[in-house]
Design a protein around this nucleic acid. Sequence first.
DNA 1: CGCCCTGTTGATACGATTCAAATATCGTGG
DNA 2: CCACGATATTTGAATCGTATCAACAGGGCG
Lengths: 233, 233
Amino acid sequence: MKTVSTAEAWTGTADCRNCAIRQSVLFARLDEPDFDAIHRQIDQYTFSPGSIVYSQDDAADAIFTIRTGLVKLTQYLPDGTQRIVRLLQSTDVIGLEALMLDRYEHAATALHTTEVCRIPSSVVRELLQRKPQLFNDLMARWHRAVSDCDRVITELSTGPARARVVRLLLWLAERKGDRQCDLFSREDLGALLGLTTETVSRTMAELKRQGWITEPRINLIVCDIDRLRAALG
Amino acid sequence: MKTVSTAEAWTGTADCRNCAIRQSVLFARLDEPDFDAIHRQIDQYTFSPGSIVYSQDDAADAIFTIRTGLVKLTQYLPDGTQRIVRLLQSTDVIGLEALMLDRYEHAATALHTTEVCRIPSSVVRELLQRKPQLFNDLMARWHRAVSDCDRVITELSTGPARARVVRLLLWLAERKGDRQCDLFSREDLGALLGLTTETVSRTMAELKRQGWITEPRINLIVCDIDRLRAALG
DNA sequence: CGCCCTGTTGATACGATTCAAATATCGTGG
DNA sequence: CCACGATATTTGAATCGTATCAACAGGGCG
């Protein structure tokens, strides 16, 4: 059995004013005084691959902004199998339900090394009082969550295995703005695509044989975007 | 070819104060003066099965509360096939993206006879100004949308055909608080479950043969809840 | 070095899709 | 109201794709 190999590390309070992704962040519209007021309450953490940001049913009192990395959100079915319902990366927010509920509805697990800012729900609520325009930003986050879900349904859970894998690769490459994408375990790929690890493995092998993708380093995939697109018909 | 057989009918302005589902509605927390101020801007419509509440990419300037009935939200894949991403019914809100975007992201189609209240985005925005606590209710709606999506992913898009059909029947019966559920076309069932109509048809036939369900009237399914649950393992 | 975990590959069985045809149902006009 | 054509549903047979079970290779770590 796999031990949850690695833990998270606290890496200081946030330096919001010099944040590299500040313009893309939930609080992008706040100004200096606001940041001064809140940044002490925002902690930064680094999670190594496989470590858990929060578990399903954990007490939920904070949301997290992903600064770098990749996170999966999983839910367990009654029969014990798990399914990945969303994949989140830089500038995405996870745990929004902490603003409504007192338990997280998913488990959030780092797939790559991931830096996050932990923002207590209380901070968000205070800011909402003072800056109602934050409503719009928050709503945009909810909207993004729904769009992501829609995409998982229509593109990653529909059609034959090859199409699902290809759509995922294209999506990851597109988000990276690159021909490349960093992948993760075949098991997680399966849980995301609704396939078994063996099927994912076979499909990837076939894509390589066709020359549509190459894997110069392990879990680093270089895509022939045009041919992959063509393969979707 | 199927003509879009039936149109919607305007059935008057809303009578919010005497609304049968008032306590479950987005504006549940508003008081009389608020309702007086807005109800003139809220129109009621009735859609018959198959008619379209709005289409993907239509100009989006209103959200809709479903009073009665059942609505599907569909999205088209690049290859032209469509997939149902959510099923909405009484007290649900559709078209929330109208508060953020100027186009609807899905097509919304009535599956059963459906009554809706059309609430212009401008009304929602005005109310948000005056009653910031409305934001919590709005956020709860977004949250419900995400939860619904999660359910479509984990329960309706995962596992073998039989399990998906059974989970859907149980879900519909549960929402109805009943052993019964009103179904819709096999084609739509397929689009919701990620299966072909033939597979759905066969699966339903098998469930009937096993005695897990009966269909006294067409599209009215009576479930043997316990046995269906047991069948899921 | 050896063990464990992950990924790969193979053989087989199962399940879903596909194509085709028959049947049932719905809507319409005579 | 019935008959007709159009549409939806059911069923069948063959094919294809995926899951399953099992064995094996490679890499990382103690």
